[in-house]
């Protein structure tokens, strides 16, 4: 695997840009995909956002000054692209972001690319009740196992703030699942 610094230098050199970009896509496609998918839920939407994320990375790589790590910068772009996508989609369909999430969850039940059981579906419903940023923090920590320190760099928020947000998210999810179980 090519070291990150080498990759940045190659990406910013016109002659090597394309091959370096291929390497970059190869290294990060899956990690970025799952980060996005956990936010947008639908596979085709995740594919669109992933492509847009890579396009932004390619276009802006020359202005990347190395103030943060390359992968941190890419995760940040993917996070912003996911939230922007959801807002744009809600606006395009003329629905609120809550309605958009409800629709996505309803679609999940018949989605061929979702093979979760009832518990996983309920878990997804619980996650969808979180505000976007908290949802991002929760999914990135829980499913992708980022450390709070990494998340702090990616989302430009203090570690303390992130921890508190994460624990509130866990509490909300637990309460949601409990309420659902009681009503069943």
């Amino acid at each position: 695997m090519v070291e990150e610094q080498e990759l940045v230098t190659a990406l910013q050199t016109e002659a090597e840009k394309e091959s370096a970009f291929r390497e970059l896509v190869m290294q990060y496609k899956e990690r970025l995909y799952w980060q996005i998918r956990n936010m947008v839920l639908d596979h085709d939407d995740a594919d669109d956002v992933l492509q847009n994320t890579f396009i932004k990375i390619f276009r802006n790589i020359n202005s990347f000054k190395g103030d943060s790590k390359l992968h941190t910068w890419m995760y940040r772009i993917a996070a912003n692209e996911s939230i922007t996508f959801l807002n744009k989609k809600a606006k395009r369909n003329n629905v609120s972001i809550e309605n958009l999430k409800d629709n996505a969850l309803r679609n999940l039940e018949s989605d061929v690319y979702f093979e979760g059981d009832q518990l996983q579906l309920q878990f997804q419903k619980a996650i969808a009740t979180l505000p976007d940023r908290q949802r991002l923090i929760f999914t990135m920590k829980y499913f992708e196992d980022h450390t709070f320190e990494e998340l702090s760099e990616i989302l430009e928020t203090s570690v303390g703030g992130l921890k508190s947000s994460y624990h509130i998210a866990v509490k909300k999810i637990t309460e949601f699942i409990k309420t659902q179980d009681e009503t069943l």
């Binding site: 890579f54 690319y113 979702f114 059981d117 999914t139």
Partner: peptide
Amino acid sequence: FPKSAGHTVPDGYFENMEDRVLKAV
């Protein structure tokens, strides 16, 4: 909580992604 989200991808989705992304760029 469940350990995984339950999402899957179409077969071979990640293969040749480099070409597709470059084409999109």
